[in-house]
């Protein structure tokens, strides 16, 4: 059995083979693998006894349930108005320049994907970004670069 399938089996056991657990299972796969491959979705369907189309339907609805490959670390910069006014463009430009990718892309080494997302609930402390589940507030280009370093080291270990 592949790693992905083992993971899915574990998640289905943990959350229960019940339609209401589908989100939790999909979230569990994304937490580990960063996105839902076609194969993963088929396996989820098999182990949860729902149709693959249903699984894809649910997955494709949610911003955080990516169905295209992503890097090991996913950066999401808030693009909504309060962060926009606080200077999110400058942060995105700095990240693009450092990572040598555009918004929507993944670095060659597969370490970072750079995305934008809507209001993250820190509007009084913009600009804001998430790296995976971690929150970074009151960003300057400098602070954004420093934040990245943490994730470069951890994957070299």
């Amino acid at each position: 059995m592949s790693n992905t399938e083992n993971l899915i089996k574990e998640l289905v056991e943990k959350h229960g083979k019940c339609r209401n657990s589908l989100m939790a299972v999909l979230q569990g796969v994304v937490a580990k693998e960063k996105y839902l491959s076609e194969d993963a979705m088929k396996k989820v369907a098999e182990h949860m006894d729902v149709s693959a189309a249903d699984v894809y339907g649910t997955a494709s609805f949610y911003t955080f349930l990516d169905t295209v490959p992503r890097g090991r670390n996913v950066i999401r910069v808030c693009q909504t108005i309060s962060c926009d006014m606080a200077g999110k463009d400058e942060i995105i430009e700095a990240l693009e320049a450092t990572l040598k990718i555009k918004v929507g892309e993944t670095t060659h080494d597969g370490n970072f994907s750079l995305l934008v997302a809507n209001c993250m609930g820190w509007c009084h402390m913009g600009p804001v970004m998430l790296i995976n589940d971690d929150v970074y507030t009151e960003l300057t280009p400098q602070k954004a670069m420093e934040a990245l370093e943490k994730y470069v080291v951890s994957t070299n270990n």
Binding site: T80, I81, N118, C119, G121, W122, C123
Partner: peptide
């Protein structure tokens, strides 16, 4: 779910 832009009090 607190998704309304500009809202962060529930957090």
């Amino acid at each position: 779910d607190e998704g309304e832009p500009g809202t962060f009090k529930d957090r």
